[in-house]
């Protein structure tokens, strides 16, 4: 018997021993308390929920700790960009777009656009910034994305409330809520699209760093292409046909329609961004499921 063969056998016996031990453990537990699938789901959901909650609090604390200005900026960015952009219109002398005050019109546009933009920028980086926590067996990569997404949406909704409240308080402008259900539909679809994009980018950004850089270059002209600053109805048909490939245009139009009673452009179709969001989310889930172990290794 050579030494190497002995070593091999030793390893084999060790493995089989641990296997047996594991099996024994499982059988012991199952004897004491058989787990039904419903119970398993319940327990899994409880753990999932508590992990996400813990991550949300951790992320929020980090956000607060980084700099006080950071969190103030998150809340105020919406108002500042709305004011700066509507200032341009007001200087030109145009106070109304599609018969709606410029500030409300742009505010509604930014509300949707910032949801999508968060899917590009802070949400996908969740995996990387929480990579230390992935060593814990209870924390999965998808939890970090979910936690970040929920936190971002929460901060964004506070920012939106601040925006519309300050518009009402200072200028007396208030949205008419012509179709509240359509508002929620638009917000839900944009959130789904943002989550789909965020998860998909989060997965592949951890594998290939360059993707993040490419995406940040590609998303530069996104605001101009999304009809945030102007109305689609002011554009000629040929331009509208090109821009209507952008799902954000439809979401923005739907939100403005539901919130402010604006007229939709002729090519408008809300089902397009909704299905695209569903598609992105499905693809993201599949690629997460396929790469979940590789992500932890990374």
């Amino acid at each position: 018997m050579t030494s190497s063969a002995f070593f091999k056998r030793m390893q084999l016996s060790k493995q089989s021993k641990t296997h047996k031990k594991d099996d024994l453990f499982v059988t012991l537990i199952s004897k004491f308390k058989p787990i039904t699938p419903a119970q398993e789901l319940k327990r899994g959901f409880y753990n999932f929920k508590s992990v996400i909650w813990a991550l949300i609090f951790k992320e929020f604390k980090i956000r607060l700790g980084e700099s006080k200005l950071g969190i103030v900026w998150v809340l105020i960015e919406l108002i500042v960009s709305m004011i700066v952009m509507s200032w341009i219109w007001l200087i030109i002398g145009r106070t109304k777009i599609d018969n709606i005050h410029v500030m409300l019109f742009l505010g509604a546009g930014f509300t949707i656009f910032f949801i999508i933009r968060r899917g590009f920028s802070p949400v996908p980086q969740g995996i990387k910034s929480n990579s230390a926590l992935l060593n814990y067996p209870g924390v999965k990569p998808i939890d970090t994305i979910f936690a970040r997404f929920i936190l971002e949406m929460w901060l964004h909704s506070i920012a939106v409330i601040l925006l519309f409240f300050s518009l009402f308080w200072i200028l007396g402008l208030s949205p008419i809520f012509s179709d509240p259900l359509l508002c929620f539909q638009a917000l839900g679809s944009s959130a789904m699209l943002a989550l789909g994009i965020g998860l998909l980018l989060g997965i592949y950004q951890t594998f290939y760093e360059s993707i993040g850089k490419v995406i940040s270059i590609i998303t530069q002209p996104l605001m101009i292409m999304s009809a945030i600053l102007y109305s689609m109805n002011d554009l000629p048909q040929s331009a509208r046909e090109v821009l209507s490939w952008n799902p954000i245009v439809h979401l923005v139009s739907a939100f403005r329609q539901g919130l402010l009673g604006a007229n939709a452009f002729p090519e408008y179709d809300l089902s397009y961004p909704t299905f695209l969001g569903l598609f992105f989310l499905g693809i993201a889930f599949i690629s997460y499921h396929a790469n979940r172990f590789r992500l932890i290794q990374k």
Binding site: G44, L278, L281
Partner: peptide
């Protein structure tokens, strides 16, 4: 296609939840 994507999302969600046990 829509049903298939919904199924993907739902089943992977369930699988992810189960992984947390």
């Amino acid at each position: 296609i829509i049903a298939l994507f919904l199924y993907f999302i739902a089943s992977i969600m369930v699988a992810t939840i189960r992984e947390h046990t």
